[in-house]
């Protein structure tokens, strides 16, 4: 399949080709790819794209996947409304 048509990061619409190009350019960690492309900065916070990006890095660089994929997600675990945090319910 055409890697230009495969979406890896669904939150930010980033294709497999873009990810592969970044790895070849020298961004060989999930953390760096996130920072330059926003892959993993969307609502899912890399829970979907993270493992796929790690697998690509592993394939291209030859590093074992355990070395490449070390997710340490920043909180919160899922998106949360400010109004939920301050305890405000919707006025009806």
């Amino acid at each position: 399949m055409d890697d230009e048509k495969i979406i890896v990061c669904r939150c930010e619409d980033i294709t497999l080709k873009e990810i592969r190009d970044l790895i070849k350019e020298g961004f060989t960690t999930v953390e760096e790819i996130k920072r330059v492309s926003r892959a993993g900065m969307g609502p899912c916070q890399g829970k979907t794209c993270g493992p796929i990006i790690a697998r690509e890095i592993s394939r291209i660089t030859g590093k074992p996947i355990e070395e490449v994929y070390k997710p340490h997600n920043r909180p919160p675990f899922g998106g949360i409304f400010f109004k939920e945090i301050v305890g405000e319910t919707d006025e009806k």
Binding site: P43, Q45, P76, G79, I80, F81, F82, I85
Partner: peptide, 11 residues
């Protein structure tokens, strides 16, 4: 209006 925004990440 920010009350209707979802926080996705803090650091």
């Amino acid at each position: 209006p920010t009350k209707n925004l979802r926080v996705v990440r803090q650091w």
